[in-house]
Amino acid sequence: MTVDWYSFWIFTTLLMALTAATVVGQMLRRRTELGVNPAVVEQFNQRTRAWWMMTAMLAVGFLLETPVVTVVLFGFLSFWALREFITLTPTRTADHRTLFWVFIVFTPLQFYFVSTGNYEVFTVLIPVYAFLFIPARIALAGDYKRYLERSATIQTGLMICVYCLSHAPAMLYLQIPDYNEFRLLLFFFIVTALSDGFHYVCEKTMGRHLIAPAISQSKTWEGFLGGLGCAALCGLAFAWASPFDPLQAAVMAGVISAMGYCGGLTMSAIKRDRGVKDYGTLLAGHAGVLDRIDSICFAAPVFYHFTRYLVVP
């Protein structure tokens, strides 16, 4: 294996950042006299753990030099997120067979096509075939009560948890000349994680004007713009690891940050609608996967396509 120093350094950076986040999180947890809200600290630590897990998923694929492992691991993540989503949304008994297809056929099939690198198929499988199949199958079951609502919730779940998330491992199959695609995914991870962190810090320090008070009491314009600016700077700082020139990298990081923010806002709206605080408390004893990957879900497909327009010949 030829040593790819760029990949090595970006991996090291990510590991150092995660170690720092873990140390800070554990310190805040132990030193209660600092007066930081324990719930917030716990949330931060859970998020850090999720990032460790995703980095490990990427590292396994990277070390084995095969993206398939990463695709499979993301497939499981998707599956779990979809479980949480569908558990949260009300479906009726008549939707049972539809859900069976969604879980057992469409989800694995989507990740299978991602792993074959078949762009033409994996980008249309869910928006075309699954989206037509779902309402038809529900109609076939013969229960018309809240028909549109039921089709829409199942479609939304499949879209966010499976289709959008599958674009993260799909980045490994972009054919960028003279470039190791693992670095692209690492760049994406680093920018998303830091942007999440910056959003939070900016909201706590400068937050004044709420974006949508009815949906979230913590999301502010200051947090959004501050996070976006910081993320763009991060993009600039990590441009060496990306296939972009510095300006492009900054814009891309801004796009990731904005989309990630939209993801968080959308998930908050869904949670408000269903009257739960976070997906972790939905059914006691479960960790909320959806809470931690909301920003990735929204940022991944947009980042994927922008990269494709920009650098894939």
Binding site: F79, I86, H96, R97, F103, L283
Partner: peptide
């Protein structure tokens, strides 16, 4: 559910 034979893997408690 009643009358079905294939389970759908949702979360229960």
């Amino acid at each position: 559910p009643r009358g079905e034979f294939l389970p759908v893997p949702l979360l229960s408690c």
